[in-house]
Every structure is written in structure tokens, then in C-alpha cells.
């Protein structure tokens, strides 16, 4: 259970850092293009989210690889698998299937809801141009939280 919690929360942190990195990059491109139109070349990039993302990713990779359930598994094989899945025995496999189903259902609710918010996007596009990035990340975070809570509830039953 500890593994599922740690891995789910790590994924959420990674998604948030990714969103801020992409938003920062998008903002840089927008400002640079605007400046270029007036004949000035400006390239200012907020490096902090990217740096945090890299540091967290490296720490998370080392920790996750060292604590992988199947110690015989090589890095190549391990790196293409979802680390949130814990299927040590048949009960855990069943719980994981149940939690994955719940996360899938959450997508079918959260994605249309966030799509509806795009009706109003033109109204706040100037104030929050990177909203689509955060909306997309929010659906992933919701799915992760649903997966984690369903897993914990089923495991402790």
C-alpha cells in the first residue's frame, strides 16, 4: 500500500512540475514572438520549474528503481511500466484492476467537464493563456487520486 501511495503522489508532483515547465516555456515563446514583432529579440525563460522537474525526476527514478517489487527486472523493462501498479498477488491484481477501472471512469467524467470549461476560455484566455495545460494535468491528477483512494479503500477492507 505504501508503494501505491508514494508512486501515486510522485506522479502527481511530476505532472504539476511538468505543467509549470510547459506553461513557463509557452509563456517564453509568446513573449519572444511578441517582442520579435517589434524588432527586439528577447529570450527570458523561468528555469526553476524545469530544474525542479529534472531534480525530482532523477530522485524519483533512483528511488523507484531501487524499491521495485521485482528486483530481477532490468532498467529497460522497468522504465516502460507504470510504477503505481502493485500486483504482488492475486488480491492486489484484483484491487489494481478495480482501481484502474475507477480511474478510467473518472476520465470519462473529468474530461467532458474540463471540455465544457473551454466554452469560457476565450473570456480568460488573455489572463490565463496556459489554462489548457493545467486543465489537461488536472484530469491526470484526478485520475491518479481516484486510483490511489480506490486502491487504499479496497486494500484495507
Amino acid at each position: 500500500m505504501k508503494r501505491v501511495i508514494i508512486q501515486s503522489l510522485s506522479s502527481i508532483i511530476l505532472y504539476i512540475l511538468m505543467a509549470f515547465t510547459i506553461a513557463s516555456f509557452a509563456s517564453t515563446v509568446t513573449h519572444s514572438l511578441a517582442a520579435l514583432k517589434s524588432g527586439v529579440f528577447v529570450l527570458e525563460f523561468n528555469f526553476l520549474p524545469f530544474l525542479l522537474l529534472i531534480i525530482f525526476f532523477v530522485v524519483w527514478t533512483i528511488y523507484s528503481f531501487r524499491t521495485r517489487p521485482n528486483q530481477q527486472m532490468g532498467f529497460g523493462q522497468w522504465s516502460v511500466r507504470m510504477t503505481e501498479f502493485s500486483e504482488v498477488d492475486e488480491r492486489e491484481a484484483l484491487i489494481t484492476a478495480k482501481a484502474t477501472k475507477a480511474a478510467y471512469v473518472s476520465f470519462s467524467i473529468s474530461v467532458p467537464l474540463f471540455m465544457l470549461t473551454f466554452f469560457f476560455y476565450p473570456l480568460f484566455q488573455t489572463a490565463w493563456p496556459t489554462y489548457p495545460v493545467f486543465a489537461l494535468v488536472s484530469t491526470l491528477i484526478i485520475a491518479n487520486l481516484v486510483y490511489m483512494t480506490t486502491w487504499i479503500r479496497a486494500y484495507t477492507r
Binding site: 504482488v88 498477488d89 492475486e90 488480491r91 492486489e92 486494500y155 477492507r157
Partner: peptide
């Protein structure tokens, strides 16, 4: 039987 202790508890 090759399962976790939690499975036996459940």
C-alpha cells in the same frame, strides 16, 4: 501459498 499476509487477513 505465495500471497501477502494482508491477503490471508482479508
Amino acid at each position: 501459498v505465495g500471497v501477502t499476509r494482508q491477503t490471508i487477513i482479508s
